[in-house]
Amino acid sequence: MTDNGALRKLAVWLRTERQRAGLPYREMAQLTVHSVATLSRATTGERIPRLQVVEAYARACGASVKQARTLWRAARYAEHRGSDHVPTRRALAKIRDPHSMICALHDLYHRAGLMPLDEIERRAGGNGRLPRKTMRRMLDGQTMLSIRQLRAFLSVCEVPETEQAAWEMAWQRAWRRRGLDRQQERQDDAGQEGRLVSDAPLLDLGPRNQRMSPEQRGNSLLANHRADPMGVVGRMTYERLKRESAHAERPRRSRRHPKRGSIQPELDLVWESAA
């Protein structure tokens, strides 16, 4: 017998329900898809049986399947409670950022019995409602669940409806903070680029420039390079025109532009002269 008190409680409950139903293991095996040995091992208390076995055992005995799941989750949580990977439980009202929300969901995952991710995906209904890859990334702290995925996860974990509103409010605060953080990062990146190119002359990339011939565009780039040798704007323009040149080399059927040449030689000449 194990030192896991919750596992002993599960084993005693299973044996009690079988005695109450008065069913031998052979008859129970006929009512389920599991063998006599599998059903018998579930009541020894030596190791935690799979959730599917516990649920089938309870159904065969006419017992509460929900109660069986509750006892199984308690046994799994008690087994991993001493692990360093189990996060501390957080109050939902104090969640304000994505990290806190992920930690709370990680704790819920442990309290729900660390169910295999493919089993979570199946119980969520499949069809991409809660992909196991998304769950894996969330548990690794790499992403947040969407509101639709959160609701599916709460349903799989059998969170009471009275508590689901608090979970959704915590998610909204974390998601709002996530959006503000991303907006600040974009502003910081834009400010950094603005400081780098604030004194650099700009190359005209408007509609008139788009109608230039390859030779004219190469001359325009050369003039811009002389004003801003190896500058940030020049490099960005070079990369952009290089992509446009590669695109122009592909055969196109157009009455207005029946044939477009490449400006790659002019571009290479500009940067070779700067070396």
Rank of each mutant, 00 (worst) to 15 (best):
H99P: 01
P87L: 09
L108Q: 09
A112P: 01
T88N: 13
R90L: 15
A104R: 09
K94H: 05
A91G: 12
D97Y: 03
P98E: 10
D97A: 05
D84S: 13
A112C: 09
H106M: 08
R89Y: 13
T88W: 11
R89M: 06
D107E: 15
H99R: 07
V86Y: 03
H85I: 01
L92R: 04
A93M: 09
Y109F: 10
L108E: 08
D107L: 08
C103H: 13
H99N: 09
M101W: 04
H106A: 11
L108I: 03
H106V: 00
L114T: 13
H110W: 10
D107S: 11
P87A: 13
P87D: 14
S100E: 10
T88I: 07
L108N: 03
S100C: 05
D107I: 04
G113A: 15
P87T: 14
R89E: 15
A91S: 12
M101P: 00
H85P: 00
D84P: 10
R90F: 01
A91E: 15
A112H: 04
A93H: 11
A104K: 07
H85N: 12
D84H: 12
S100A: 14
A93F: 08
L105A: 02
P87M: 14
L105W: 02
R90G: 04
H85Y: 08
S100W: 00
D107V: 01
M101F: 13
H85D: 12
R96S: 08
H99I: 00
I95D: 00
V86R: 10
V86T: 15
D107R: 15
T88R: 13
I102Y: 00
A104W: 01
P98Q: 09
L92A: 07
L92P: 05
D107N: 09
H110A: 08
L114R: 08
R111Q: 15
L108A: 11
L105P: 00
H110M: 11
I95P: 00
A91K: 15
K94V: 06
P98A: 07
R111A: 09
D84C: 05
H106P: 00
A104Y: 12
A104Q: 10
R89C: 13
I102W: 03
T88Q: 14
Y109M: 02
H106D: 11
L92E: 06
K94G: 03
P98H: 03
I102R: 06
C103G: 03
A93R: 13
M101K: 01
M101E: 13
D97S: 06
M101I: 02
Y109G: 01
H106G: 07
L92G: 08
A112D: 13
D107Q: 12
D84W: 03
R90T: 02
R89D: 15
A104N: 14
L92D: 13
K94T: 14
H99Y: 01
L108V: 07
T88M: 14
A93Y: 12
D97I: 03
K94A: 11
G113Y: 07
L108Y: 04
T88C: 12
I95T: 05
I95L: 00
H99G: 00
P98R: 03
D97N: 12
R90D: 06
T88S: 14
K94C: 02
I95C: 02
T88A: 15
R111H: 10
R111D: 06
G113I: 01
H110P: 01
G113E: 10
R96W: 03
K94W: 07
